[in-house]
C-alpha cells in the first residue's frame, strides 16, 4: 500500500466522490425546501424510484436523455403534488404519509417497469461533457470538470438554492411559513400555497436524483435501484442543518468516504470488507457528533397548518 495514494489515485477518488454526491445533493436540496416550509417528506425514496423509472423509460422510448429528464421532472412534480394533497390539504401525519408515498412509489415504478419494459434493458444515457479550458487544468480539471450535465446542475444548484432561500422574497416566504406560519398567514402569505410549491420542487429534485441514477450512472433500470439513497438524502438535510452549503458538505463527506473505501478495497485490504462499506455511514455520524452545537430547526416542521389555531 505504500506510496499507492498518489495524485492519480487521488483524482480517481475525488472525481468519483463528486459523481457519487450528485443524487444525494439533488434529493437533499429538494427536501431542504420541503422542510424549510414546515413539512417533512419521508417519501423521498419513493419519488426517486418514480423519477428513476420515468427518466429511464422516456429515454428508452424517445431516445433522448434530455427528454427523459423532462419527463422525470413532471413525474416528480406529480408525486410532490400527491404528498402535498395528503399532508397539506388533508393534514395527514407526515411520518406515515411519507412511508405510504415510499411504498407507493416503489411499487408503482416496479409495476410499470414490469408492464412496459419487462426485463433489464440498457439505454444510452447522459454523456460526460468536458468543460472547455477548465477541464485541462491539471488535477482540478479531471476532478471537477469531466462529468455529465446533471452533476454540474446539482453543484450549481447549491448557490442557486442558497440565493433563492435567503435572498429572494419567495425564499423569505418559505422560511416564514416554516417558522411562524400564523405570522406569515397574517401577513397575507398563503401557507398552503407555499407548502404545495415546496413539495412540488422537492418532488422534482428527488425525481431528478432518481433519473440521475438510471440515465446518468447505471444507464439501466432494475428493481430497488435507489437502494436506500433517498433515506440518506433525508439524513443529510439534518446534517446540513437546512442550508445548501451544509448539505453540500454532508453529501461530499459521505460520497468521498464512499469512493475512498471503494478504492481501498480495490487496492487490496486484509480486513472484513464490511468495515470499508460502513465507512461513509460512520464518518457522517462522527462528523456531526464532533461538530455539535446549538441546533436550530424550522419551528413549524411537521405541524399541519390550521388557520386560527396556535400550532
Amino acid at each position: 500500500m505504500d506510496g499507492i495514494i498518489n495524485s492519480e489515485i487521488m483524482i480517481i477518488i475525488l472525481a468519483a466522490g463528486i459523481r457519487l454526491a450528485t443524487p444525494y445533493l439533488l434529493a437533499a436540496l429538494g427536501e431542504m425546501f420541503v422542510q424549510r416550509s414546515g413539512v417533512y417528506n419521508l417519501g423521498v425514496e419513493g419519488i426517486m424510484m418514480m423519477g428513476a423509472f420515468s427518466g429511464f423509460y422516456a429515454t428508452l422510448q424517445l431516445g433522448s436523455p434530455l427528454l427523459g429528464i423532462a419527463v422525470s421532472l413532471v413525474v416528480g412534480a406529480l408525486m410532490g403534488l400527491l404528498m402535498a394533497l395528503v399532508s397539506v390539504t388533508f393534514k395527514a401525519e407526515q411520518g406515515i404519509s411519507g412511508i405510504g408515498l415510499y411504498m407507493f412509489g416503489w411499487g408503482l415504478s416496479g409495476l410499470l417497469f414490469r408492464l412496459y419494459v419487462g426485463g433489464i434493458t440498457s439505454v444510452e444515457g447522459l454523456k460526460a461533457v468536458k468543460v472547455p479550458l477548465l477541464s485541462s487544468i491539471p488535477f482540478l480539471g479531471p476532478v471537477l470538470f469531466d462529468h455529465n450535465g446533471l452533476v454540474y446542475t446539482a453543484f450549481l444548484l447549491v448557490p442557486v438554492t442558497g440565493f433563492i432561500l435567503f435572498k429572494s422574497s419567495w425564499g423569505l416566504n418559505v422560511r416564514a411559513v416554516g417558522n411562524k406560519p400564523e405570522a406569515a398567514d397574517t401577513l397575507g402569505v398563503s401557507v398552503v400555497l407555499i407548502r404545495y410549491q415546496c413539495l412540488i420542487v422537492g418532488g422534482m429534485l428527488a425525481a431528478l436524483a432518481g433519473a440521475f441514477l438510471t440515465i446518468g450512472q447505471a444507464n439501466m433500470y432494475a428493481d430497488n435501484i435507489t437502494a436506500g439513497r433517498g433515506f440518506i438524502a433525508i439524513a443529510l438535510v439534518y446534517f446540513g442543518r437546512w442550508s445548501p452549503w451544509g448539505i453540500l458538505l454532508g453529501s461530499l463527506l459521505f460520497s468521498l468516504a464512499d469512493s475512498f473505501q471503494s478504492m481501498v478495497q480495490v487496492l487490496g485490504i486484509n480486513f472484513p470488507y464490511e468495515l470499508a462499506v460502513v465507512l461513509p455511514y460512520m464518518v457522517t455520524i462522527i462528523a456531526l457528533a464532533i461538530s455539535y452545537g446549538r441546533v436550530w430547526a424550522p419551528a413549524a416542521l411537521g405541524k399541519p397548518f390550521q388557520r386560527g389555531t396556535r400550532g
Binding site: 406515515i96 404519509s97 405510504g100 415510499y102 411504498m103 412509489g105 416503489w106 411499487g107 417497469f113
Partner: peptide, 11 residues
Amino acid sequence: AMIMVIQGLVV
C-alpha cells in the same frame, strides 16, 4: 410490485 402499490395506497 403491485403489493407495494396497494399497501402504499391504503396507507
